[in-house]
Structure formats: structure tokens, C-alpha cells
Design a protein around this nucleic acid. Structure first.
Lengths: 270, 270
DNA sequence: CCACCCATTATGTACATACATTATCGTTCG
DNA sequence: CGAACGATAATGTATGTACATAATGGGTGG
């Protein structure tokens, strides 16, 4: 504690000269960034290096606090964050344990196709092929919406340097987004318009591989049967469906990529 | 502040009778769960309902603090968490703003194929087709590994009720995981073995759609050209490659699905 | 008038304190 | 001996206080 006071008034960076040793135990804090981040790195490091094995119990907050020479609150913050990120499991009275069997998830960014194309330095265009207003159940049924609810359907093609790369088929819940009825979509693609305008709170996705039908193949300018990535996404707001969209992209012109999520290690520059 | 004292000693649940009104302003806190969660819900609610628009500036911590009748620290915790989840953007001196253009990511679970099959109530089996030890650059090149590094290659098929559903082609860095050389994999599939045994800290993924080659089609028991989902994943630990794996699954027997990530709204039961 | 500088403001971090909550573990009682 | 119970140890939450950090926006001097 007392050694803390010596450097009180020094927060965040500029703690250069002060590495672990100055905090009592000699357990390595690197002196970079906020204290709680240093603790996170130190603890995550012990785990990643196998020093603390999966399932093993960590010292309690008091002990860590004196081990690293910081207050219990600071340790608590660091450990609570690691727990939130899935590295640790905490149980009152029982203690803190290294998480076992980390089932990972990976994150795929949902990017606007226009952004992707533009980032590749290509010219993006889109064309609305069809636009219809109808009621749910009339020819089309959107399962999560009651029959008779007004729906706008949009069919759209996306181009990169003039080459078709993605087909989009979309349903929009007109009860939830009435303004869409007056939007011509002559300069802005529906997906972009919706992202910018309509708040949403959750979404579900399904990714599959399918062979292009003759019709789709013709639209996308490929041989029938070409493998395509099919992405279905339903977006909701306050548990009300907003839009249901089906993207079809030619396999060798489009891919999804991403990194693991709770990537504390990356975050922590390890 | 003073109204807080009236109920000091009451934390977490059991705050039934005390709704917003008791905290001064009448801005709705629902009295359920920790105070900072209530604040999170209240603020996220305002945003989702469009009461606070995208890009708009929120009241500062002091104001929110008196608005909700809690301390600045509690407000800070709630707001900081919402910012961490991507709902808000904070800038010192400038203030707190509702995040604009929320780029969503969605989470795909990385499940062991065996678990998936078992959950469907089917019988899971796998078969190792080939296993070789070689050095990087001899016939195969793993770009992220230096030439000459020892590699174990595994080729493997996964079955559901006797039907082939996934082909796996894997490279393992023997420098990083030497024990794998002695593992026969006669009861446990390589993926499972690795997950259970080897710590890892990050991973990269790419998902594509491809047409089955004649060879793959034969192995998977489908027509050549059938659309397949191709997943490439490289797992690292402390910035050292551990394993590089390539899964190929028949399109209509396998799909990926998941929900959006920063789903504060779901978390918050909205 | 523009560039620079500095006061101000809002967020960020750290520590101390106090009490709540929860589940484990040991003890006691039937 | 087993079930119930209560002390206890661990994490969780809330508040007060203090100061750090960053950047805005206005004022000042050239």
C-alpha cells in the first residue's frame, strides 16, 4: 500500500521506471497503461502460458491485491473483466477459476457490400430488379410476421466493376418501417438505407452453401450449379421483425472472414 | 442522494416497491437487479426507442447521476459498459454520444462436429484417412511457419449415422505441440483432442462456398460439383501458429448459424 | 486575423470503505 | 448418521473522494 502512495498522482502512462518490483512482490506488471489493464495482462499471461491451468483456482482478490500491490477494487475490476470475456469463472464463496473447455465463437463482420467493393478499389453499383408491396401470406409468407401484415419486397443486384457479385432478396416489415414505402432507393442501396435509418437490437444469421439455380446463375453471370454462399439474416427491434434478407454471392468472388471474439490475448497484445 | 440512504442495505433484488419514483426524477428504473444494470437498461431503452437518436449527445455523468438518483460511479459503470458493448461512444471533454452506423458482427459458435452430430441424436464416427510427418516446404507450405519446421498432417472424415458429412484436412505445428506425435487418435478426434489439450489465444477464419471436386465428392458421397461450405481456420497461441485446418462440408447437410454479438438488448431482456 | 495557449469540462482511473449476496463447510441436533 | 443450520469466506455492488487525462473552445498576443 505505502509504495502506491509514493507514486500517487501518476496514472495511466508515464509509469516507465516503475515495473513490478516497485509494487512489492516482483510479479511482473509491465507499467504500461492503466493498472487494471496491467493486472489483466499479468493474469491472462499466467493462464496462456499454462502457469495457471484450466480449472485451477486463482488466489482470491485480497491475495492478488497484495501480490500485485494494488487495491482490491482494482484487482476486482481486472478479474471481473477477464471473467466477462470468458477467461475465468467466478463463484461466490468458492473462488475464481480458470475457465475450462473454452468454446470459442468467431466473429464475422456484417459489412455493407458497397463498402467491401469500395475498399477493394472497385466501382460499386446496384440495381433494383423488383419492388412490390403485398400482405403477408399472399404468395409469400414471412413466418415471424402475422398474416396480412403489410410487407415490402425488394429484389436487388449488386455489381463490382460492372460484374454482378451478389443477389439480394429482401422483405421489410412496413408496420415497423413505414417510411420505406416512400423511399425510391435511387442512390442508396436498401441495406445501407436501413442500417442508417432504422434502429435494431438483434439479428439472426444462417450461412449455407448452395448450387446456383439456372435463374440465379443467369443473373450472376455464372454457370448453373456454381457454388454460392447463401446468407439469410433476420433483423429485429424490440422483438419485432424489421427485415428479412437473403443474400446470394458467387463462391469465388466473395468470402467471409473474421477473427475469434473474446480475443483478450490480442486485445492485450500478447 | 438522501433517498439512497433510505434504502441502503438493500442491494440486488428485493427492491420491489422501489421504482424510479423513489429516486427523484421519475425516470424509469425498474427496480430489478443491480443499480448499474437498471441504468444500462434505462439508457439502452431510451436509445432503442429512439428517444435518444444516433449521434446525439447524452447528459453527462453528473446529470445522469442526479437524474437517476445514483452516484456518479454507478452511472459511470453502466455507461462505460454500454460503450464497451458498442452502443455509445465516449470522448473526454466532448461527452457521450449514441453510436452511429453500428456495424454489426455476428457470432458463429465453433463447435466440435462430434457435439453437433450428437446433439442431433445421431451417431458420430470419424476416420483418419492419412497421417504424415513432414517438414514445411516439402510438398506443402504453411505460409506462417518457417521452412523446415516439423509438421503433422492429418486427413480425416466425419460421419453422422454413417453418412459422411465433413472432410477435415489439418496441419499441426509439431514445435508447438510435440505431444501430438504420440497421439494415435483412435478414440478422440484431432479437433477435440487439440481443444482439450492445447491452449490457444486467437484464431482467424475464412468461410467460402466451393464446388466439390471429383475426389471430395467421392469421399463425401455426393455428385461432383455439389456446393460445399469451406471453412479455413488458423489457431495461434502467443502469436505462434498451432494448427491450420480446412473443413469441407456438404452444403445441404451443414450450415452455420448464430446471433448478433453485442446484443445488449437481448442481454437486457428488451 | 490567425495561431497558439490555457482554463474548463467531461471522462477515466485508483483507492477506501461498507455492506450485500451466495454457497461452502463444518457443526450441531434430531 | 444424516439433515438442517449457521458461521465464514469469497465475490458483488454502491458510494465518496481524489486526482489524471484529454480535448474543446475561447481568449490572447503576435
Amino acid at each position: 500500500m505505502s509504495d502506491r502512495i509514493a507514486e500517487s498522482g501518476v496514472q495511466g502512462l508515464a509509469r516507465q521506471g516503475l515495473t513490478g518490483q516497485d509494487r512489492g512482490s516482483g510479479t511482473a506488471l509491465d507499467g504500461k497503461g492503466p493498472l487494471f489493464d496491467q493486472i489483466k495482462r499479468a493474469v491472462a499471461g499466467q493462464i496462456l502460458r499454462g502457469r495457471w491451468q484450466a480449472g485451477e483456482r486463482l488466489p482470491n482478490e485480497e491475495e492478488l491485491s497484495s501480490l500485485y500491490g494494488v487495491s482490491r477494487q482494482t484487482v476486482h475490476k481486472a478479474i471481473a473483466l477477464l471473467a466477462r470475456e470468458g477467461f475465468l469463472v467466478r463463484r461466490r464463496r468458492a473462488g475464481t477459476f480458470v475457465a475450462t473447455g473454452r468454446r470459442d465463437r468467431f466473429a464475422l463482420p456484417i459489412e455493407d457490400i458497397g463498402d467491401v467493393v469500395a475498399r477493394d478499389g472497385r466501382v460499386y453499383e446496384f440495381r433494383i430488379r423488383e419492388r412490390k408491396s403485398l400482405r403477408n401470406g399472399e404468395g409469400i409468407r414471412w413466418p415471424d410476421l402475422p398474416d396480412g401484415a403489410p410487407i415490402l419486397t425488394l429484389e436487388c443486384l449488386h455489381f463490382s466493376d460492372g460484374m454482378p457479385i451478389q443477389h439480394e432478396w429482401r422483405l421489410v416489415n412496413l408496420d415497423a418501417v413505414p417510411e420505406v414505402a416512400d423511399e425510391p432507393f435511387d442512390s442508396m442501396a436498401p441495406s445501407r438505407w436501413l442500417v442508417d435509418r432504422v434502429p435494431w437490437s438483434s439479428a439472426e444469421h444462417t450461412v449455407r452453401a448452395v448450387n446456383a439455380t439456372a435463374e440465379m446463375a443467369a443473373l450472376l453471370g455464372v454457370e448453373p450449379g456454381t457454388a454460392c454462399l447463401s446468407i439469410r439474416r433476420q433483423t429485429m427491434h424490440l422483438s419485432r421483425p424489421i427485415t428479412l434478407v437473403h443474400f446470394l454471392s458467387v463462391g469465388d468472388r466473395f468470402s467471409l472472414s473474421g477473427a475469434s471474439i473474446t480475443d483478450s490475448a490480442t486485445e492485450l497484445n500478447m
